[in-house]
Amino acid sequence: MKRKINFSTAIKEAMFESMKLDQKVIVYGLGVGTSGNIYGTTKGLKEKFGSKRVFDAPAAESALTAMGTGMALSGARPLLIHQRFDFMIYSLDQIVNWISLWSYKSAGKSQIPITIRTVVGKGWGQGPQHAKSLHSWFSNLPGVSVVYPSSPYEAKGLLLGSIFSNFPTIFFESRSLHASVENVPIKPYFLDPTKSFIRKKGKDLTIVGFGPSIVDALRVSDEIEKRKKITCEIVDLRTINPIDEKTIINSLKKTKNLCVIEHGWPNSSVSSDIISIVTKKVKLKNKPLQVCWPQSHVPTSSDLEDKFYFKISEIIQKIEKNFK
């Protein structure tokens, strides 16, 4: 049975289901189980599963991540939540030097099945300290999976898939998507956090996106198909580490036109990586397009913020120009 729910409810359901499925799931982080409850997503969790398995924590992101490493090492499935991605940066040593290395250095004998949910803000003056999205940093790293769901259905299934994977996962979540709605099954289900998929079939242009850029891709595709005689194929990456090359390349072999949309900075980014992967393997008809933020910090002022984020009309213009 399916019904329409929004993204944040989907996330909440995934956490409830995971805790019901396995008593080794532990959910914690700053603001978990207290008034804010991570934008409402952890509301009711502590009441249902108790304060040992669901707890708020001191502002000590490094040690909290290390704690998750230790929990995972000893058989638990910790879910650490950062209300804002920017706070997670304190824990880089744990993520890079410990979590990502663990399986490799143990020759696969020991695993760290931790999931880190990290929320990227957007709009209303979130500004330079509450709206960064350094997902690309983590796609550079061996030993961790990085997922970025694009819709409520994806969010629920991917969070469950991530919590019950035996490898570590960083789960990016765009705050701007929290209100988006979709049909989502009531029952728990798992999505493979290592695979991309074709969200929409088309023949002439492949739009590659992930997380919040999928809504952009859908809008762009709707508009373009209305105005031009071309059809768009949308690749929803779902995972940016590992990158599912096969799905991307197969689409490009057909369309031979590429546009990548990414909510993040362009330098050393997932979008530049995708363009590099594709152009090494497929001869494109037109030059590939990269749609990103300017290589500049996110402004607080709402007027400037409005200029900072790319607009659908701009993407369409770029594509049309490219398609002459």
């Binding site: 209100a179 709605v181 809008r219 595709s221």
Partner: peptide
């Protein structure tokens, strides 16, 4: 599970 392709382009963005 298989991916779902229900998701529509007319989504509201979150009010912060």
């Amino acid at each position: 599970a298989k991916p779902s392709i229900d998701f529509k382009s007319n989504q509201k963005t979150t009010k912060l």
